[in-house]
């Protein structure tokens, strides 16, 4: 699975993407965020306030209960601020 990070989520984690095998017990966006938060202190800091982090699965906005599967492109980012 490929995970992309943007804006301050990217800054806190220190990289813009990473690829790994999805653990078998991770089936939703929320569970993936929880698993990522345990990977390092930097990840923990990026996911410290779940309500501030939004997600997309395969380039569509996704809630925390949205399913994820190996092969999906998942992204985590702050609420958008364009326009």
């Amino acid at each position: 699975m490929t995970v992309l990070y943007f804006a301050w989520v990217k800054d806190k984690i220190g990289k813009s993407s990473e690829t790994f095998a999805l653990p078998g017990d991770v089936t939703t966006v929320g569970e993936l965020a929880g698993w990522l938060a345990q990977q390092s202190a930097a990840h923990a800091s990026a996911f410290a306030e779940p309500r501030l982090v939004r997600a997309a699965v395969n380039q569509d906005h996704a809630d925390s209960d949205h399913p994820v599967a190996d092969g999906d492109e998942v992204a985590f980012f702050p609420p958008v601020t364009g326009g």
């Binding site: 943007f6 804006a7 800054d11 992204a75 702050p78 609420p79 958008v80 601020t81 364009g82 326009g83």
Partner: peptide, 26 residues
């Protein structure tokens, strides 16, 4: 168009201020 763009299109503003760079809050 502009209302939906502001909350759905994945853009992020980082302001370059005298005190440093600040990501804009939604």
């Amino acid at each position: 168009l502009i209302d939906w763009l502001k909350t759905k299109a994945p853009f992020w503003k980082c302001e370059h201020k005298a005190g440093g760079d600040v990501w804009v809050d939604a």
